[in-house]
Design a protein around this nucleic acid. Structure first.
Lengths: 145, 145
DNA sequence: AAAAGAAATGCAACTCAATTGCAAAAAGCA
DNA sequence: TGCTTTTTGCAATTGAGTTGCATTTCTTTT
């Protein structure tokens, strides 16, 4: 569904280089965190990464994710489950999530439907749009079987 | 922008009756909470209601809002500010938010754009939609002046 | 290469809103 | 009225996010 990570692995050689190219100094913590998340095609939480990197401190992961977000490697998304989620940024120019998210109420997964663009709503006079969040809640293709 | 409350006051006589009609026993706390929120045309938080009803306990308000939500008098909405927000339900049949929300990054207000319907995205095979959240972030008509 | 300075990390503690346990109060009912 | 159930207020807990600070690691300068 999301070919971003694969593409990157083909073209981007190493995590070190990828981080450097985006203005993030590639420290050991950040490389480990990036390696852990760069292949993900679903939205993930801080706890998800924490569980995958059990030796690493929560706040270090938190700070890495924040830094990645600041440097537009990640999007912060809010799927209404109450936990902050992140997904890989695959924007080419402007840094806005332009795809729809789907949160399964059964398994809790939030999918990045990267091929499904967010339809635009025209706003009333005076309202200026900067960013749009479009989250569908329902049952995912696995849980609906 | 939202004429719901006014319509209700015309047709619905008293809060007591309105709550009863929707399966909520109209206790004194619930009536006070409902009176406080039923005229609102913007999304509000628990703290908003708490500040308006200074004598009432936080958890009592919380429980009232939860009960109202369970009985479809309110929608819970998540505008990404991290605080749970509520807005009046004006659905006629199915209980889904069908309008767009707008959260101003300046003043923090979340507007219910009740005249602006959420455009539907067709989902991939196997995904079943139950509910959609559409939140635009930007600058509102007041802050953009 | 050593010293000084800057940045990153780990740990513990804090924040802040949501939520719950429980006893007291109020409401419903026989 | 007396008994039972529901509701309410208070205090405490939860849980994720976040921060302060001392230690460690990295970078730069001499």
């Amino acid at each position: 569904m999301c070919t971003f990570a694969i593409e990157n692995h083909k073209t981007m050689n190493t995590p070190e280089e990828y981080l450097t190219q985006h203005g993030v100094k590639p420290t050991s913590v950040r490389i480990l965190v990036w390696k852990e998340i760069c292949h993900r095609n679903k939205a993930f939480t801080l706890s998800d990464v924490e569980n995958a990197l059990t030796d690493m401190d929560r706040s270090s992961i938190f700070r890495s994710l924040r830094l990645f977000t600041e440097h537009h490697l990640l999007h912060e998304i809010d799927d209404g489950t109450g936990m902050q989620k992140y997904c890989l940024c695959r924007c080419e120019d402007n840094h806005h999530v332009n795809h729809v998210h789907f949160t399964c109420t059964e398994c809790g997964q939030t999918y990045c439907l990267t091929d499904y663009a967010i339809p635009i709503v025209e706003l009333p006079e005076g309202f200026i749009s900067k960013n749009i969040e479009y989250v569908i809640k329902g049952i995912c293709h696995k849980c609906s079987k």
